[in-house]
Amino acid sequence: MSGDRESEEPDGVWGPVLEIACDESGSDGENLTGGNTDVFAHGSVSLSVASAAATVREIRDRIRSPAEEYKANHLLREKHRAVLEWLLAPAGPIHGRARVHLVEKSYVVVERAAGLLLDGPAEAPALYRAGHDTFGEEGRRSFLEAANRLLRVRDNGDPVEAFYGTVEALRRAHPGTEAARLLGRLAATRARAVAYRAEFLAGPPLIPVLNPLLPAIVRTAALWSGDGRAVRLVHDRQNMLTPDRIAWIEEAAHRSGVALAGVRLVVARDDARVQVADFLAGIARKIASDELNGRGDPALTALLRPYVDPDSVWGDARSRALLAAPPAG
Rank of each mutant, 00 (worst) to 15 (best):
A162C: 13
R232Q: 13
R269H: 15
T134K: 09
R190F: 03
R129A: 14
R318Y: 05
W86P: 00
G43R: 00
F135I: 04
R64A: 09
W14K: 00
S25V: 11
R318C: 04
R190H: 05
R318K: 15
E9S: 11
A130R: 07
S106N: 08
A299Y: 09
A202R: 08
S2R: 11
T220S: 13
D61S: 04
P205R: 12
R77K: 12
A268K: 08
S142E: 07
T189K: 11
V13L: 10
V103N: 02
D278A: 05
P10I: 01
N293W: 11
A193P: 10
A91F: 10
E24K: 01
Y128E: 04
A198K: 10
L170Q: 10
L18D: 08
G35V: 06
L233G: 02
T134W: 11
E251Q: 13
A82L: 10
S51W: 00
G43S: 09
H174Q: 11
G26V: 09
R77W: 06
G226M: 06
G262C: 09
A191C: 06
A252C: 13
D28C: 14
T33C: 14
A89Y: 07
R232L: 06
L144I: 11
E24C: 00
G96W: 10
L323S: 01
E104Q: 08
E58S: 02
V108C: 08
A89I: 09
A216I: 06
P125E: 04
D61K: 06
E138R: 06
V276H: 07
L18H: 11
A89H: 14
S65C: 03
G226A: 07
N31G: 05
A124T: 08
H101N: 14
D236C: 13
N31S: 13
A53Q: 15
A247P: 05
I249H: 00
R152I: 01
R181I: 08
G115W: 06
E161Y: 04
I59V: 12
G257R: 05
D271C: 00
A173E: 15
L300P: 00
W14Y: 11
G3M: 06
S7F: 00
A281Q: 11
W224C: 00
Y164L: 06
H42D: 15
L214Q: 06
E8I: 00
F163D: 02
R60W: 02
